[in-house]
Amino acid sequence: MLSRSWRRSPGDVVLKAVIAVVMLVIVIVTLYPFWYIFVASFSDPREVVRTSGIMIWFKGFDLYAYREVLNYRLIWIAYRNTLVYLFFGLIVNMTMTVLAAYAFSRKNVIGSGVMMKLVVFTMFFSGGMIPNYIIVDSLGLTNTMWSQFVPYAINTYNLIILRTAFQAIPDSIEEAAIIDGASPAQLMVRIVLPLALPSIMVIGLYYTEEIWNSYFRGLLYLRSDQKYSLQMVLRMILDTSHTGQSDQAFVNTNIDRTVKYASIIVSTLPVLMVYPFIQRYFVQGVMIGSIKG
């Protein structure tokens, strides 16, 4: 131990110091925006204006912003919509992706290779925004909840991650099940899916995040604000960017700032609450994906 530290060159010490400082800066820069928005949303709106963006602790506890958000009907409609899209979306996403991944993970199936090529090709080339829109529109999906998940039923990256996970299950286990007389469907439901459950959960989390945070698909396909997703309504609240107006309007805008913060908190809180518990599964997903290379 002594000899090791004795051998440390001055370069090593400088490196350690640099790393410590950089890490500290990264941690502060990452956390401060979250903290600021949290404390400011509970603070006195006038104080938020006065401190112009720098706030370490609550200044005058005030629930004004949350009352405003609570009284804003549209955000709750949007909340409900997103939950509905999430519920049906997850069913569609998971059914399609799991089935497809399972089929592609089977060996000795004639035509499987060609099918996979067709699927992978779509990762590198797509018809583009407008042809996609025309197709979805011609199916009559525009401004329906179906537009929010049917065209997005399979994410090809997720499909490949799941396929890799299914392939990793030892053949011997599956063979034993087949000898015991399991039908192809039974093999999938009773053997493969339970064994790959952690990976399936990870993919479920990916889709949950995708739907919860989705904005563009709503922008493309939803027309009536009664069907808007949470992110779309959130955008409506956050987008009231006013520049250069009278003093009175200026003050009002800045009072609205706490309302913006509160709506960010309300819409992001579910994510932030479950985050500490699920982040390691997300990380797992990246790992599964990386093995594929």
Binding site: M96, L118, T122, I130, P151, I154
Partner: peptide
């Protein structure tokens, strides 16, 4: 595969045709 083919056909390949 049939289901997958139909989905990719409609939502990925039909736009390419479009």
């Amino acid at each position: 595969f049939l289901i997958v083919l139909i989905w990719y056909g409609i939502f990925r390949y039909a736009p390419m045709y479009g």
